[in-house]
Amino acid sequence: MASQDWQTTLRAKGYRLTPQRELVLRAVERLGHATPDEVLGAVHEESAAVNISTVYRTLELLEELGLVRHAHITDRAPTYHSTATPDHVHLVCRSCGEVTEVAPEIIEPMTAKLLDTYGFVTDVGHLTIFGACQNCAR
């Protein structure tokens, strides 16, 4: 998402543009997929004035505004990624931890079947499939 877009989104919802919010969003965009602790580490590269509670509150707000999403790709804290990237499904290798982003069209037959059979609309942005990557499956 362009800098102007997220700033406009914040202002339109009545929120201030703070340096902390910009640092957190920039860290999420730079890291790709990151837990709050990883975001904090990236933020601390630019400013030590931000603490973990600020990161959690900011991630919550940014998700509420539709600027980031979270997925559960580990058994730890949720992992956040920017909504500036296209929707994707996460394939997570249980052996090496590699995360592969897959276009939703790949699993469209499954999501179509869920819709036809159960009337269930799948939120692929939160979808994570666990297994073994090509290297670990050998």
Rank of each mutant, 00 (worst) to 15 (best):
T79Y: 05
E63Y: 04
A48K: 13
Y15Q: 06
G131Y: 01
R30F: 06
C136F: 07
T35A: 12
D5C: 02
A48V: 05
L62F: 09
G125V: 05
T35K: 09
T74N: 05
Y118I: 02
H33P: 00
C133H: 04
P86S: 07
F130K: 15
E98M: 10
V28I: 15
E46H: 15
G14D: 02
T58R: 00
T74V: 07
L67D: 02
D87T: 15
H81C: 05
E105D: 13
G41M: 08
V55I: 12
C133E: 05
H44T: 05
R26W: 01
P104A: 02
T83G: 04
T74Q: 03
L61H: 03
H33G: 08
C96E: 10
G41H: 10
D87V: 13
T58F: 03
R57M: 10
I107K: 02
S95N: 13
I52Y: 04
P109N: 06
A132C: 11
A42P: 04
E108Y: 10
G125P: 07
A132M: 11
V68L: 00
V28Q: 04
G97E: 03
V89K: 00
T122Q: 08
V124L: 01
T117G: 10
V55L: 00
C133W: 08
R94M: 08
D123P: 09
R76G: 12
R94P: 03
T8N: 09
T117A: 08
E63D: 09
V102I: 14
V68A: 00
T79L: 04
P78M: 02
